[in-house]
Design a protein around this nucleic acid. Structure first.
Lengths: 137, 137
DNA sequence: CCTTGACCTCAAGCTGGCTTCAATTGGCAG
DNA sequence: CTGCCAATTGAAGCCAGCTTGAGGTCAAGG
């Protein structure tokens, strides 16, 4: 098994070395060994980093990502909790969709004041309902 | 037109008074008047706050939200930029969908190691591609 | 008129997620 | 063997987005 220098991991994953060390501190990833002082990472960290990056992009904190997938990339949570996460994601997706629609509406609707446009208001109300649902997590 | 005390706005919108003052500092909302020292808000701030809350939930910074909708709730950006925003949102939605699918897969697939499951790897690669696209904004 | 309590301002503090810096170590090419 | 250059550590710093605290104001009810 070939091991990777932190610099190489950084380059391949697009994650800065300082961030990688930070992740290691937090226990999100683990280095396989040391060569002298230097961390040597196994190739699997690249996949784990994809997972982390994806989770972050999805708006989860590092702690939350760590909770979903242990540092081995295995799920740490029971199935029902994972599904609950997925449900929360679905809710967030609905919210984003509302915002997207609202944005396109604003871009296209020639009404003078959007805050008074009934269509727009409906969109917003839908959004705030979604927000409340999501607040539960 | 009836004006609202900051406490009432807080209660109705679910946004803390301190946050409301902070938003005002940033120019995201404006108080219509003062009664003595006390801010008096027009009722339209409630709608504006929906917008702000929605934008935040969608992962935009306050600055970005401010850019999408001025403090009057009117679009501040030219149409094409608004559409560009909407496109970015669509990309983010795709990412979230990938994560959601990955999560459900992890919850349901009985494979011993997900990082080695081909289905899962495909999901992740799709996700990292999306991530690169989105990095452009 | 006096008290109460919601509001005010300004400054400092906090969390998350890193980055930067200074001082040091050590792998490896020549 | 030498010297370079990448990597190491620990502490400090930075930004966003608020919250908290101290000390002050004032509108309204009794």
């Amino acid at each position: 098994m070939k091991l990777l220098d932190i610099g190489e991991v950084a380059e391949r994953s697009g994650v800065a070395p300082s961030a990688l060390r930070y992740y290691e501190d937090l226990g999100l990833i683990a280095s396989a060994a040391r060569k002298g002082l230097r961390r040597q990472f196994g190739p699997e960290v690249l996949l784990q980093l994809s997972l982390i990056t994806l989770g972050k992009a999805a708006g989860f904190s590092l702690q939350e990502v760590a909770g979903m997938f242990g540092k081995d990339g295995q799920p740490d949570l029971p199935r029902d909790q994972l599904h609950a996460r997925a449900d929360a994601l679905e809710a967030q997706i609905r919210e984003l969709t509302v915002l997207k629609t609202a944005l396109r509406h604003v871009a296209d609707c020639p009404a003078p004041s959007h805050l008074e446009c009934p269509k727009f208001q409906r969109l917003l109300r839908a959004g705030s309902r979604a927000g409340k649902t999501r607040a539960l997590r």
